[in-house]
Simulated assay, not measured.
Amino acid sequence: MARDLAARLNTQTNTANNAGSDAGTAVAQRPQAEMTLNDKIRSMEAEFQMAMPRGTEATQLIRDAMTAIRQTPKLQQCDGQSVLGSLMTCAQLGLRPGVLGHAWVLPYWDRNANDKRGAYKAQLIIGYQGLVDLAYRSGQIASLSARTIFENDLYQVEYGLEEKLVHSPLMTGNRGNPVAYYAVVRLANGGSTFIVISHDDMVKHRDAYASAQKNGVVFGPWRDNFEGMAHKTCLRMLSKYMPKSTDMALAVANDGAVRVDLTPSAVEHPQHIDGEVVDEADDVDAAATEGGVQ
């Protein structure tokens, strides 16, 4: 069943000033200049807890965040508010950063920050599994899948009054090169719909929207996991034709966003800025490990 996120946001706004855990309060009482990024995250435990769906724990989100920082040390160079903002969005959507393919918090170079001198900020990337999980939570989805069609598979795609998608993958031998990607959703009421994107069109989409590029060369998951990114793109496009879910719509809108506003309603107004995801292995601003994607 879809949660009434709007009502929950109003409740958070009205009660945020009265909440706080003992541990979080103790950390928050330290001078701001003395607080590490981990300290700032811990100090937000009460706010994260209020934002999260019932049955989930802020302590788990904080542990996930600490792991993400250890795995991506450059996050410590990011504007702390943007890291907290990405985590707040994860809290509100009930997603785990860096876990289960739900979402990633990644260093992002904002070329227009500090009077165009540039600065690191954190960007939230919603994963394919995160979108799938949110789709199922709506209660209106019976099944959801994304697959790749290879040139030696048997397939048929028809659009029009009687749309048809048939895909019989080759089970032995060489399946050949990928020719298309698709996502299919079956609704709880018995209906279904699908979307198919050719490999050539997917390459064009990547080149147009992947912010993880340097000198025209694509980095990150579009290079390292093209198929997974193609499946995610299909699902994002298919979501336009699926039953409306507040959480799903917010996830799609916040994918690739940089958030510095921690007020609960800020999730409804995501900010997408001009910049590039940064590669931990490359100190040059334009490199990337996990792409800002559309």
Rank of each mutant, 00 (worst) to 15 (best):
R3E: 08
D4V: 03
L5T: 15
A6V: 15
A7L: 15
A7Q: 14
T13P: 11
T15L: 11
T15M: 13
A16N: 05
N18E: 11
A19I: 15
G20L: 04
G20T: 08
G20I: 04
S21D: 06
D22I: 12
A23T: 06
T25G: 04
Q29P: 09
A33D: 08
N38D: 15
M44I: 06
M44P: 02
Q49Y: 04
A51Y: 07
M52R: 01
P53L: 00
P53Q: 00
T56I: 01
A58R: 01
L61Q: 01
I62S: 03
D64P: 01
K74Q: 11
Q77N: 10
G80I: 13
V83H: 03
L87T: 02
M88W: 14
M88E: 13
T89F: 06
L95M: 13
R96F: 14
P97A: 04
V105K: 00
D115G: 04
Y120Q: 12
A122S: 14
Q123G: 02
I125K: 13
I125E: 10
I126S: 08
I126V: 05
I126R: 11
G130A: 01
L131H: 05
V132Y: 05
G139H: 00
Q140I: 01
A142S: 14
L144K: 00
A146P: 00
T148L: 09
D153K: 00
D153L: 00
Y155H: 10
E158N: 08
E162R: 07
L165E: 09
H167T: 03
P169L: 00
N174I: 08
G176P: 06
N177E: 11
A180T: 02
Y182F: 10
A183C: 05
V184H: 14
V185P: 09
N189A: 08
G191R: 15
G191Y: 12
T193A: 14
I195V: 13
V196G: 07
S198G: 08
D201K: 15
H205V: 10
D207W: 07
A208T: 05
Y209K: 13
A210S: 08
A212S: 12
N215V: 02
G216H: 06
V218C: 13
G220T: 10
R223G: 10
N225T: 15
E227K: 13
G228Y: 03
T233R: 07
T233N: 14
M237Y: 14
S239Q: 07
Y241P: 02
M242E: 08
S245N: 00
S245D: 03
L250G: 03
A251C: 04
G256D: 11
G256T: 09
A257K: 01
V258K: 07
V260H: 14
S265L: 03
H269K: 15
I273V: 03
D274Q: 08
V277E: 11
A281L: 10
D283V: 07
V284Q: 11
V284A: 10
G291C: 13
G292W: 15
Q294Y: 05
